[in-house]
Design a protein around this nucleic acid. Structure first.
Lengths: 69, 69
DNA sequence: AAAGAATACACCCTTTAGGGTATATTATCA
DNA sequence: TGATAATATACCCTAAAGGGTGTATTCTTT
C-alpha cells in the first residue's frame, strides 16, 4: 500500500527531529494546518500541502492507487 | 520532469474521449472545479482532486520533485 | 510520581474555494 | 464560410478552510 500522506509527513518530520510547530513555521503554514495534515484531514488545500512537502524535496502528484512501494 | 497535474488529467480525460463536463459529472465534482484543475489553479481542495483522479485509478500522493519519468 | 514538552481540541474570525449560471471565446466540422 | 460543440471568464453566493489563541490531553524524561 502507498503510505498515507499524514504518515509520510510525520515520518519525514521526525527524521529531521523537529516539532510540528517548527515544521509549520519553516514551511510557512499555520500550526493548525500541519496538525490537520498529520491527522488525515481530507479537505486540505493542495498549495499548502505542497509548501510542507517542499521541505522534503517532494510535492503532490498523481500516483496509482495500488502502488506497492 | 514530472507531468503536471493539469496535464495528467487532460491527457487521461482525452484518452477516454470525454468532455470536461462529462468527467466532472462522473467524478462528482463541479464543472468549474474541473476547469480550474485543468488550468493549474494551485489552491484546489485535495479531496476534490482525488475524486477526479479516482476516475483513472489514481490518487494524490507525495512524489520527489526531480522525479524523471 | 512530578515537570515539561509536544500534540490535540475548542473557540471565533477572515478569506476563499467551489457551485451555479450566464456570457465570451476558441476549436471543430459540415 | 457558418454552425455547433467545447472550453474559458465573469458574476454572486454559501460553506468551510485556515489562522490565531487558549485550554486540555498525552507523551517524555527525570
Amino acid at each position: 500500500m502507498a503510505e498515507k500522506l499524514s504518515e509520510f509527513v510525520k515520518r519525514k518530520r521526525k527524521a529531521l527531529g523537529i516539532t510540528q510547530a517548527e515544521l509549520a513555521d519553516r514551511a510557512g503554514v499555520g500550526l493548525r494546518f500541519l496538525r490537520e495534515l498529520e491527522n488525515e484531514k481530507p479537505t486540505l488545500r493542495l498549495d499548502k500541502v505542497n509548501l510542507v512537502l517542499d521541505m522534503f524535496g517532494c510535492e503532490m502528484g498523481p500516483v496509482r492507487k495500488d502502488d506497492n512501494s
